[in-house]
Design a protein around this nucleic acid. Structure first.
Lengths: 222, 222, 222, 222
DNA sequence: AATGAATGAGTATTCATTCAT
DNA sequence: AATGAATGAATACTCATTCAT
């Protein structure tokens, strides 16, 4: 038995409604962030959905309102952490006008700042660990992340060859070799390296510098 | 300390006893081999102990006779797959008298043939995936594999510097960078690459060649 | 007892208010109709309240505004589907002046047309299925449907005996036997018979004819 | 550290082994009996598998050792309670040499004693309640129980016609009508009738007598 | 009154582990 | 030592019910 004052009726109602709506729109993001943290940390199976929900500040039931199964949640995490990032990169590369060596260095730093050093970087380790159990996701990941990523590096190397800057015998294999230390870095940081005080982590900046130095000298014509 | 009843003592023939003893001694190895396969393939949680037992040709109960928990089984798998290979390497390296470039190439090939291409190589992927859930075993792995492995590479690089063959600014970081593509190769082969028909695998030999070419040129003095 | 705010009072037009009131009065009926359909079809447990709400065109929350629990909804469905039909029958029977055989045939057809063939007929199947879980409602059903129904048939049979038309040894048992095929018909139609293409349904009219023929010949004096 | 005496080794071991084996062979039956009780009583959904297990004197997990899902358990209950019974009947009917009226009476009594009055009788009610949720089981039930059952009655009626004992217009419809009171009896006894002190049950023997009397008179030639 | 987002108790099912034989 | 039947804790997912708007 509640009597609304005219003031309440006008002012309070829309405000509250807005709050609710804002929560609802924020939920998926909050859930994905929580899930990303936990999946990366403990792996897929060892993560309990209830934990994810609690970390996102909602109840178990609410999670299932947004993602119908744990597996779908996992897929959404992978998708969300990556989509769009790569297109961004590609257009930047296209616009680059300096030497191919500089372009490669620029690409490496961009990747590190926008992916490798962020939570999204952990996805690589996650996929490494769970690909065997989720062929469907593995395919999705390879199509939408791995292949485009390799393609990007390959196109830089090709550009270097075309401009007479790089000398490369086996382009495909070399593409993999150039990318490998980057993947390795994020995998390490989110597995062994995450065991602080137990395993030594890799210092990213010196590592990235050494990587670029080695690669550029290794690729250089002459 | 169990005393055989006369009935058992009479019934059991010497031949049978010998067979059984041989089986018994082989058991742990069979179990570890089966477990390694499955752990590498599916990860720790997704592997059911019954599957391991079945693949090893024994019953579930028998497995627990040898390894009191699934975690202990996992640790035993990692431990067993690692022992002693590196000392072998080290003494070979010590004895090597050619150029440091040749030594590095030799080390890479030895590693690939004796570790990377074998089941033991899969351990790297397994540790990458499970380090977070097994800190103790991660430490063990770091101490007995990672650190010595890095040490080995580092000593080769140092040898190259000392002999005026290599020019390296940041030795520690470069050591990691040189090793990274090797770890990456085995990780890939046992995760994404294992999804035949779904994800493209890396061709190991061209990849290893490209790796060595890039690294040697990248390290070379002048 | 809620007091409308001035805003609401001003904004809400008389037309809207009327519409809403009409809707509001119609709600319980729409909900019960939807619930009846689903309960009959799928049983109590397998029916989800959300489905009921959806079918009635309201939200889940609204349903609970009218019926505080699913059980109460169920009871309301049964109660509502039963009320008052029998009194109608009774007075028609009282007024009947033909032979008792004709009266029995007339009663059978009336029942079929007004109950058996309608949604209300489905209640028998529902009660058969759920009596064990709803003792209170079973009692209610027995008192307001079964007993009066049997009483009606019984009084027709008694009329036949009194008028020298029927010969019956055990009146109570025979009453049950005469009624049984009718109950069976509706139960069947709403269980096995409803599995179109899977189970053969019973053709009602031939079945009812055969029933009447058998019963009348079986009851006839001589 | 346990020392077996020769006596134990010889005597105890086989005995115990036998006990175990006997238990294992008895399990399915015990589980089905428990499940039948509960399914009949509470319906499929309202029965918890753990209850079934406990009533059978085993743990939840053990039940799933024998039946992989609740639904499979249900199917097994239906199968077990019925299969074979019908073939039994059929051969007895074939061998019958008396009048068709006697044969019908004999069939009715046999059914009652061996099915209707036993737990298996409850299956009819169970199917009535759950057919909508288990089309697969409904089909199985109709094929293996309903159709053969109706066929049996139909063949008796046909025999009566052929021998000039019965006069029947619509054989198919009449078959249903003759069977209906029997199905009704078991449905009633396991739903409304089971609510002792709440709903009046049907007395089976007078009911069956009245049924046979009505049917025989109703079918008789002349 | 109406909504639908949120809740959390409840349940089928899995699987590491135990233990009688 | 070996077996495999039995256990029961753990967990994904459902759904009646609540409640802020």
């Amino acid at each position: 038995m509640r009597v609304l004052s005219t003031v309440e009726a006008i002012v309070e109602s829309p405000a509250k409604a807005a709050t609710r709506r804002r929560r609802k729109e924020a939920r998926p993001g909050e859930l994905l962030a929580a899930a990303l943290d936990l999946f990366v940390d403990k792996g897929f199976s060892a993560t309990r959905v209830e934990e994810v929900a609690l970390r996102a500040g909602v109840s178990k039931g609410t999670l299932f309102l947004y993602y119908p199964t744990k597996e779908e949640l996992f897929k959404a995490v992978v998708r969300e952490s990556i989509v769009g990032r790569l297109d961004e990169f590609r257009s930047e590369m296209m616009a680059f006008s300096g030497s191919s060596a500089d372009l490669l260095g620029f690409a490496q730093r961009s990747w590190w700042e926008r992916v490798g050093a962020t939570k999204a970087g952990a996805i690589s380790k996650l996929m490494m660990a769970e690909a065997g159990n989720f062929p469907e996701i593995a395919r999705f990941y390879e199509e939408s992340v791995v292949r485009p990523g390799l393609g990007l590096i390959r196109s830089i190397l090709q550009r270097g060859i075309d401009r007479g800057e790089f000398q490369i015998d086996d382009l495909d294999a070399t593409t993999h070799v150039v990318m490998a230390p980057l993947i390795h870095l994020v995998c390490w940081r989110h597995s062994m390296g995450a065991q602080h005080g137990i395993c030594a982590d890799i210092e990213p900046l010196p590592y990235l510098n050494a990587h670029m130095k080695l690669v550029l000298k290794g690729l250089a014509k002459r």
